[in-house]
């Protein structure tokens, strides 16, 4: 499965190489044109079979949140900082992969036995956490790692439950998988696909990609938070697993263009594809950067609901992913 393969690859913001190469490998042999830019965005053109006259761009980001080594201690432990928004409370007792050679590491902590009762009540601060790669000292660590080495979570994508997947980086490899499926299928309307970089550090790749491609209409295909979990009131759940793709009306980066918002609803209703609204206005997406490109672009967002986003292990439902492909396809057919 495409998503499984993509989500297992490391691709922390600024180091999306492995993901980009895996996508390019998929593109080979299909009648597609592509190029990369100086930030590392992968821009793909599908000529399509329709007579579409509008320039439509779909965007999904290749990068994921992760960590970066910021200094190496005498003992060989690695100090680090998060790349992108991570709740540091999720980090302790997790496995990671360090550097392009993906050497294993663990994030350890002071054993509970050694903590005073009052310490046990407090979450671990970033400065108390270290990555341990098993090196005996700084010299040995420096054979594998330097300041600036990227670190990604190490969670293998695993099917479980009723059609669910557990894994890392679904935000936004899920979107990448949707775009790839639409690119690789025969026929369908023409569109540009932007596999963007550095979304998690400020929507940076999309801004440049949109400047280059100059679309008239754009849709960011994302993975978004689902909080349909115990102890969360229904009105604060944002999205729910299994209810189909989530259509955004607004987030911190964009007020979705009303024409696109309505177009997505109509496309879903017409093709009888289940969908839901993303009932939350926080968070930012590539669509925000795209909308403000040059003279302005009509932009929207559709997202696969995903629990425990920005953590080492998120959960999505395969049916939602498939319905997202269908909804985006239906919208493309009506728009392009």
């Amino acid at each position: 499965m495409l998503l499984e393969k993509l989500s297992n690859l490391p691709g922390v913001s600024g180091n999306e190489k492995a993901v980009r190469e895996a996508i390019i490998e998929q593109l080979q042999g299909h009648a597609l044109e592509w190029q990369t830019d100086t930030l590392g965005n992968l821009l793909v053109r599908k000529k399509g079979s329709g007579s579409g006259s509008r320039r439509v761009m779909l965007a999904a980001h290749m990068d994921e949140v992760g960590l970066m080594v910021t200094s190496i201690e005498k003992s060989g432990h690695l100090k680090f900082r998060p790349v992108g928004g991570i709740d540091s409370r999720v980090l302790v007792s997790k496995r990671v992969r360090v550097g392009d050679d993906r050497i294993p590491g663990v994030i350890g902590s002071k054993a509970i036995h050694l903590q005073k009762p009052e310490e046990r009540l407090k979450p671990f601060e970033l400065d108390q956490l270290y990555i341990d790669i098993g090196a005996r000292n700084k010299d040995e660590a420096e054979k594998h790692v330097q300041i600036g080495t990227y670190v990604s979570f190490d969670t293998a994508c695993t099917p479980f439950g009723d059609g669910c997947l557990r894994g890392k980086a679904f935000d936004d490899r899920a979107g990448c998988a949707v775009l790839l499926e639409l690119l690789l299928e025969k026929g369908g309307p023409a569109f540009d696909a932007a596999f963007t970089v550095q979304e998690e550090v400020g929507l940076r790749g999309a801004r440049v990609a949109s400047y280059t491609l100059q679309p008239q209409y754009a849709l960011a295909v994302e993975a978004t938070a689902a909080a349909d979990t115990p102890d969360t009131e229904k009105e604060r759940s944002a999205t729910m697993l299994g209810s189909g793709p989530a259509i955004s009306f607004m987030d911190r980066s964009i007020i979705v263009n009303r024409e696109i918002f309505k177009g997505l609803i109509e496309a879903g209703e017409k093709a009888k594809i289940p969908f839901q609204f993303r009932r939350f206005t926080g968070g930012g997406t590539d669509a925000g950067a795209i909308a403000l490109s040059r003279e302005g672009v009509k932009a929207g967002v559709v997202a696969v609901p995903c629990r425990y986003i920005h953590s080492p292990c998120s959960v999505l439902k395969k049916s939602d992913l498939q319905h997202t492909v269908s909804l985006v396809r239906a919208w493309l057919e009506a728009t392009a």
């Binding site: 229904k234 009105e235 009306f249 009932r279 206005t281």
Partner: peptide, 17 residues
């Protein structure tokens, strides 16, 4: 404000613009 949720009793939840 923007409507983010309509509950079973017809009350609307809102977020700021």
């Amino acid at each position: 404000v923007i409507v983010t949720h309509i509950d079973d009793n017809g009350f609307l939840r809102i977020a700021p613009i």
